[in-house]
Design a binder for these strands. Structure first.
Lengths: 335, 335
DNA sequence: CCGAATTTTGGTAACGTTCCCATGAATAAT
DNA sequence: ATTATTCATGGGAACGTTACCAAAATTCGG
């Protein structure tokens, strides 16, 4: 019941706590026999080091905070997986908070994590600029921040992990054109998210290059839920401008739109091809399966974890931005 | 940069740390003026109590572990939401681990959480019996365990949160019969999961009652992924026994099966109606939307968190089982 | 076989906080 | 005024661990 400590071992073996500690920590200044005895006793009595005591001693909490906009798509869980791959073996814990795409809740989450005394925070923004003051404050108070996926403006000195949105969006549009599509609609992401602009720019650049660009084909939904995707499809149909394909900011929007089109008995991909952007299982659990830009999400988590460790080890470490390569995966929704 | 402590305040105000502590902790034995001064100084210097120190002092880590079989469906995240609703305001942190439906990984996760010195563990099993020895050991070592959704056998003395699987499965079958289905197939869950048996029993009871039961209609897939659902549908078709509807152990299996049927140009629900069991958004992001038993997942998390708090406060507290009421939601896949 | 060098061990402060006990100051009762 | 009584504050131990320094034990060289 009662936790057994180094002191109990000391009493049991008639040794000092220092000696016990040395045995446990692989210090060179200890007699091999003593060490063996201590290790045996530790095993027998079931000694477990108390991480809290160490944290107090070394002024660390060994907690890393994670802030994500949502967790109903598997996006965050895949990133989390990557984060845990790196951090758990090192004895760090990860505390997760969800912002519901709401900068105010995000703010609360950050404050909560600060109260929890985390050693660093990994964050996927819900809104590019809304909490920039707080990000800076937190970093000023000595807690490193690493941004991934949705990142803040350049003025903030912090490490980042992203994929090359512009290029991959461009390639996806090229793919749609290759498969014979001429009227490619774009369901955009919120203007408050940097990636939206990047992906939209890729879309626009390629269409312009092929002389196919028409601003009427760009739809700006309210948010980025399935419902928003659905509404975007409704809008597109209402416009009666004709379109033979859709490139959506995320798989979520794409699926929302696709489902509405299916309800209207529109054939996918025959009448309308659809492509998204994400990297989660979502793309494969719908019918037809969704062509999509697959971001390496696990890797993204690993990279973010690595960057935060750099900053924790050395608070003067320079900020870095890691750009990961995403992969286009062609599925039934575009062929 | 450097964290400011109670000692810094003491030095700054020329008082003892005891007095500062008393002011901060709302002790009665302190002069109101002194208290005011301390509080002001604390605000000015930006004092934040160090939770690690408190944890050491009180022998708690204020960490609660969560073990779930998977996180690609939003099941776990909804439960987590409920858990956080209860635990975060009380200053607890939640550490999440994922077992990948693998009892061996589950075992590792439990050991990891124990090393992390958690005050309690909330767990959704990946396999009913595989780690029962470890559950018992952990509880013997004074760490309370609360099971939710997938629970272990009765022999284990621990609190549990479940829904009434049997009744809700029964009602779902009644619904299918009401809508004119006569050949209702069941894609079963693994026999190593208690809920599988419960839901299958409900299925069997109602069909027998109506004289519609045919063991040939019960399919046992390997696991519970989308892929397994898909394979189950393939099996069903291969059997060539005829079926006009499917009740699956979970939405995941249901969707996997549905997508295969759609690929075979089988009309849902006209030719085959489909119903699942879960309570996540998954049911609404597919086309057609899935009729399903919606478990109150957030509430499940809240209940589980409440139960673990009972055990933490009083290690002698009696174990309780909370049975939540699930709701049938009828959608396009059955009408 | 003795002093020097080396190895092994013990003692204690420190991390930040609270809590018990003791001390000093102020107030109340006689 | 003098002793009790309350009130306000200070001192120090404790939670579990490590790290530094000192002390003891052992080995080595001559």
């Amino acid at each position: 019941m009662k936790r057994i400590t180094i002191k109990d071992l000391a009493k049991y073996l008639l040794l000092s706590t220092s000696t016990i500690s040395r045995a446990l920590v692989n210090d060179k200044n200890i007699h091999p026999d003593t060490k063996k005895k201590v290790l045996e006793a530790a095993g027998k009595l079931g000694y477990k080091p108390n991480p809290t005591a160490l944290n107090l001693k070394y002024g660390q909490s060994k907690n890393i905070g994670l802030v994500v906009p949502e967790m109903i798509t598997p996006f965050a869980s895949k990133v989390l997986r990557g984060i845990q791959n790196i951090l758990y073996p090192l004895g760090y814990r990860v505390i997760i908070t969800e912002s519901d795409e709401n900068p105010l809740i995000e703010r609360k989450n950050l404050q909560l994590l600060e109260e929890f005394n985390v050693d660093g925070i990994l964050i996927n923004l819900s809104h590019e600029t809304h909490n920039e003051d707080l990000y800076q404050q937190i970093m000023d108070r000595g807690i490193p921040l690493v941004f991934f996926d949705r990142i803040p403006g350049k003025s903030l000195d912090a490490s980042r992990v992203v994929v090359n949105d512009h290029i991959k969006a461009s390639l996806m549009i090229e793919h749609l054109i290759d498969t014979g599509r001429k009227r490619i609609a774009h369901i955009m992401g919120p203007s408050s998210i940097r990636n939206s602009a990047e992906r939209a720019a890729g879309y626009q650049r390629i269409l312009t290059k092929h002389g196919l660009f028409d601003p009427e084909l760009m739809i700006q939904p309210e948010g980025i839920t399935f419902e928003d995707g659905r509404n975007a499809a409704i809008q597109l149909l209402n416009k009666k401008i004709g379109f033979d394909s859709i490139f959506a900011f995320t798989d979520t929007l794409a699926i929302g739109a696709m489902n509405y089109l299916l309800e209207q008995n529109i054939k996918i991909p025959d009448e309308v091809a659809i492509a998204g952007f994400s990297g989660t299982e979502l793309a494969t659990i719908v019918h037809p399966q969704l062509t999509s830009v697959a971001q390496p999400l696990v890797q993204m988590g690993e990279a973010a974890a690595g960057l935060i460790l750099e900053k924790i080890k050395d608070s003067e470490a320079l900020s870095r931005t890691i750009v990961l390569d995403a992969e286009l995966i062609y599925r039934a929704s575009t062929r």
